[in-house]
Simulated assay, not measured.
Amino acid sequence: MTYFEDYRIGERHESYGRTVTESDIVAHAGQTGDFYPHHMDAEFCASQPFGQRMAHGTLVLSMAIGMLAGEINEEAMSYGYDRVRFIKPVFIGDTIRARAEIVELVDHPRQPERYGMAHERVDVVNQRGETVLALTKIYVVNRRPSVSTVHPTSEHESEH
């Protein structure tokens, strides 16, 4: 378990790589209803500047967040995403990886005694090292319980 006090600005981790497939794009289109021709129509895309179909930005975002989700921290939950930017297209056959770094630690605005907020900068890069997506993920994280708030076990519980 990682409490708010355990986070450090500058902590980094990187995901494994994942190659984006046509199946990923088709499945995402079906799940979201986004059948925009830039994702689905190879003939249309052949006449466009990029010349090929591209993955949905929301697909790349979802894949990146999933790739970074290594272990469950029961003391934190996602609060949301800020400054999401789709910088370059991702094409079928591109391999992406996500890099994350804690860039800010702040008190929760309404309950600073209970929670902190960790801001994690996420950059998604392709196989050429080009940044294709950038965002800030925000976590709400429990603060470490103080000794005075920890409840001692009852006599009955301590007998076992």
Score class of each variant (00 low, 15 high):
E14R: 14
Y16W: 08
G17S: 12
R18S: 03
R18Q: 11
R18G: 01
V20D: 08
V20P: 02
D24F: 03
I25G: 09
A27G: 02
A27L: 13
A29Q: 08
A29T: 10
G30K: 03
G33S: 01
D34F: 04
P37Q: 12
H38N: 14
H39I: 01
H39D: 12
M40G: 03
A42M: 04
F44R: 10
C45Y: 07
C45W: 07
C45V: 00
A46P: 05
S47I: 00
Q48L: 06
M54Q: 15
M54C: 12
A55M: 05
T58I: 07
T58F: 14
M63D: 08
M63G: 01
L68Y: 09
L68S: 08
L68H: 04
A69K: 03
G70D: 14
G70W: 01
G70V: 03
E71L: 06
N73G: 03
A76R: 04
A76W: 01
M77N: 08
S78G: 15
S78I: 07
G80E: 09
D82I: 00
D82R: 05
D82S: 09
R83T: 04
V84L: 12
R85M: 05
I87H: 04
P89S: 01
P89Q: 04
F91S: 12
I92D: 11
G93E: 11
D94V: 00
D94Y: 00
T95G: 09
I96A: 07
I96F: 11
R97D: 04
A98W: 01
A100G: 11
A100R: 08
L105F: 10
V106Y: 00
D107N: 14
P112Q: 06
E113H: 14
E113G: 13
R114L: 13
Y115A: 12
G116E: 14
M117C: 14
H119S: 11
E120V: 14
R121W: 12
D123L: 11
D123F: 03
V124W: 14
V124N: 12
V124Q: 13
N126A: 09
N126S: 12
L133P: 03
L133R: 07
L135A: 15
T136I: 12
T136P: 09
T136W: 05
K137Q: 14
I138G: 00
Y139P: 00
Y139K: 10
V141Y: 01
R143E: 12
S146M: 05
V147Q: 14
S148I: 05
T149N: 14
T149G: 01
V150F: 02
